[in-house]
Write a protein that binds this DNA or RNA. Structure first.
Lengths: 261, 261
DNA sequence: TCCCAAATCTCATTTTGTGAGATTCGCGTT
DNA sequence: AACGCGAATCTCACAAAATGAGATTTGGGA
């Protein structure tokens, strides 16, 4: 498990100290928390400050630094998924009072990268950067169900307990079969799996290699939704997913091939 | 200048490869660019992937990873400046067609952390994360002018050439004197220093220790602005800066002192 | 100006990262 | 299914680089 770059790992580990509850640390607090000696902590801090990942606040406080914001800016600026997704999110959110999310799949993490709220009092809030549960909800299934066989099996294995608890099947093969059947039905629907009283409707987004990289998801208060509307919205979300996939695919082709077809 | 955590610096340096123009790298490209051997590059990549700063994209591509977005989320979520600043930015932008920025000062970097646009065709665009020039413009001066003496001198020294070019004075002492005089006048005004044809009006924001930590800035097309309006807006911006400072101060006091006065 | 805590420096010790080369893995083909 | 290719990982001896005890220097507040 050891990797050969221990000090770098310990340095990056310092950033794990920062949480919603605690965004300011002093060098001494870090020493106490992590058990490194004084010069070591100061060396680590210096490296992170030089790189811009930490910033001084007040005389002895340390917080996350400007590099974080810059890197996020880079990602937002140059992310084809985000650029194309913005207008689509807005269009979807106009269809029904709801929260519409664009969620990127990072292999072992789902992360909201954009959201649009049209519900007056949204029951769940997922701004950019908030992590999502990996094995529950419509989003999760939208991605799992469209994974190539090998990856699907691996992911099921990793999250076997959660998936079993949802009643998708007992064995890995059972669950894989269930998921593969879900492909036929278009958008994936989940009721109250992530937030009580909320229906989630999700469609996968594919990149140029037809691998799922993200999902669109509309979350709607159960009480504002009847079956006919649900069917309509499912269709709309599915088509939005296809549109977004097409954009990503086309962009890739433009990048790679010179000239047009 | 050497620091004692060289490998960590090299690893963080890998993130510097990523730019607006180039958000995808392969291991081999990194090898070629940085000159490290194959196993080393893979070890570095592994450390960054494990920490979530890099993510696989496609079979061999690497991009910035989810940790970046998460950390930015943490900052946005828990940043008192940002939470209090949002409504203030909106109010200011309603006063005149303009782009209103909230810019944080990181000692050697100015970074836009929030912005609100009300101009129909803004001449300059500064979304969150975009760095700003350090020694030009109203923002820069709003902060420099309100620095405590010692820090002001240090910063003038660092940016002597730029400040001289703006005609603020010849020697460090001259410039310090000019800046100190500017304190009296309320909001700081600059014409076309950052973007042609645009007037910038900026006010500093202070934290609990009365040190400037940020600036509010309104940027307005020169042609839509007469002198009376400029005076009105200067006042509004200055007051907004005071409001924001007061919020930060109060919050700190609430955090530190138990009970009320 | 003094004073004290916070931050940095010094340097001997030894842990750790490094790189050449061999090996295994993953995946697309026949 | 077995093959074959390139990408990724592993092995291990060596050298370099990180570590920490203690001394020293900052620098901000009376």
């Amino acid at each position: 498990m050891s990797t050969g770059v221990g000090s770098a790992e310990r340095i990056l580990g310092i950033l794990d100290l920062f949480s919603e509850d605690r965004l300011e640390w002093t060098a001494d607090e870090m020493m106490a928390e992590l058990g490194y000696t004084r010069p070591t902590v100061y060396r680590y801090i210096k490296a992170l400050k030089d790189a811009g990942f930490l910033a001084q606040v007040g005389p002895h406080g340390l917080t996350l630094g400007p590099r974080v914001v810059e890197l996020d800016f880079l990602m937002r600026k140059s992310d084809a998924l985000l650029c194309a997704g913005g207008p689509i999110l807005r269009d979807l959110s106009a269809l029904h009072p709801s929260t519409v999310l664009l969620v990127r799949w990072y292999g072992n993490k789902l992360l909201c990268v954009a959201s649009e709220v049209s519900a007056p009092e949204p029951k769940s809030s997922y701004p950019r950067g908030r992590p999502m549960p990996l094995a529950r909800g419509a989003i999760s299934r939208a991605i799992l169900a469209h994974l190539p066989r090998r990856q699907m099996l691996a992911k099921i294995e990793e999250n076997l307990d959660d998936l079993r608890a949802l009643g998708l099947g007992d064995t890995v093969e059972d669950i894989a079969e269930t998921l593969r059947r879900l492909r036929k039905g278009g958008a994936l629907i989940a009721r109250g799996e992530v937030t009580d009283g909320v229906v989630g409707i999700a469609a996968p987004v594919f990149d140029a290699t037809r691998a799922p990289v993200a999902a669109l998801c509309m979350t709607i208060d159960r009480d504002t939704l009847d079956d006919a509307q649900l069917a309509d919205l499912s269709g709309a979300i599915w088509r939005a997913g296809e549109t977004l996939s097409a954009v990503l695919t086309d962009m890739r082709i433009e990048d790679v091939v010179l000239g047009d077809l």
